[in-house]
């Protein structure tokens, strides 16, 4: 009924990562019921296992967990920074073809990062070149995508910086002179430069002052809604997940503990761990 109108952009099935000896037998010896992701019989760490979710255009999906939950590993596998041990990650590209990211070479992955998939990092320094101007950081993905007209590059950069509320008179300033919140906005502008269908947000406001974070979250929410991108938001902070996402999942010891509509997960958490997390957040 309603599903036919949804355009699923990201489909994650059975995603998993083993570190260390990578003994597949460790899977049954680890998990939330056993209270650990580390194999008691060896040195395999089941950082993530059996992770399933999907995100459509215009939707934001949250991944919540404490440190060690596996949420960062999941993000990094989708981003291509970590090689997955199992599963598939299907991306619907701009040309409407679907590709399993995990079957691509590192070189093909890098090509996707130009205009199909962007990442907004927790530390803006990881997603920006601090020695380059704000405009220059946006010129980077644009030229990588083949833009060769200086005037048009400037125009597009100015448009994006305006959209992310960065004062235009700072467009030619080196990014290292910007405050943390401003750096994050420039990172957002850069991530959106080539209109990628999928954007990953990794703890997008952790480390920012509360008032600054609020402004950045507003902006992210606004951008997700108005640009129709598919977003995955990873955070340990329920307030961020609540603000930005309509559906989310909770991870613990590498497994999905619960998945549902965000306000339902916060209002009526079913799993004991989720209840603990929510109670702690509400306290």
């Amino acid at each position: 009924m309603i599903s036919t109108e949804r355009q699923v952009v990201l489909e994650v099935r059975g995603l998993g990562k083993l570190f260390g000896d990578q003994d597949p037998g460790a899977v049954v010896r680890t998990g939330p019921e056993l209270g650990t992701a580390k194999d008691p019989q060896g040195n395999t760490v089941v950082a993530a296992w059996d992770v399933d979710f999907e995100v459509a255009a215009g939707e934001a999906f949250g991944v919540i967990g404490e440190s060690g939950s596996g949420k960062s590993t999941v993000m990094r596998m989708i981003a291509g920074d970590v090689t997955a041990s199992a599963g598939t990650v299907r991306l619907r590209k701009r040309d409407r073809s679907r590709v399993d990211l995990l079957g691509l070479t590192p070189s093909e992955r890098r090509a996707l990062r130009i205009d199909e998939l962007s990442i907004v990092h927790q530390d803006p320094a990881d997603g920006l070149d601090l020695r380059v101007t704000a405009g220059g950081n946006i010129a980077d993905p644009l030229t990588a995508a083949g833009w060769r007209n200086f005037g048009q590059i400037r125009e597009r950069a100015a448009e994006l910086l305006t959209r992310t509320e960065v004062p235009l008179d700072r467009m030619d300033d080196l990014v290292k002179t910007f405050s943390g919140g401003m750096k994050q906005r420039v990172q957002l502008a850069r991530a959106l430069a080539n209109n990628p269908p999928l954007v990953l947000f990794d703890e997008p406001t952790t480390g920012l002052d509360a008032s600054v974070a609020a402004g950045v979250l507003d902006l992210i929410r606004d951008l997700i809604e108005s640009l129709g991108i598919a977003a995955v938001v990873v955070s340990h902070d329920f307030a961020v997940i609540e603000m930005l996402t309509s559906r989310c999942m909770v991870m613990q010891h590498g497994r999905m503990v619960e998945q549902g509509v965000t306000d339902q997960l916060l209002e009526d958490p079913i799993a004991p761990y989720t209840q603990r997390l929510v109670a702690a957040a509400r306290a």
């Binding site: 090509a111 405009g135 010129a139 990588a144 030619d172």
Partner: peptide, 19 residues
Amino acid sequence: HAEADYARMWVSLYEDVVR
């Protein structure tokens, strides 16, 4: 060079023109 990824060069040309 292998991936013909010359974006950083283009950025430095952009910065040159801006400066």
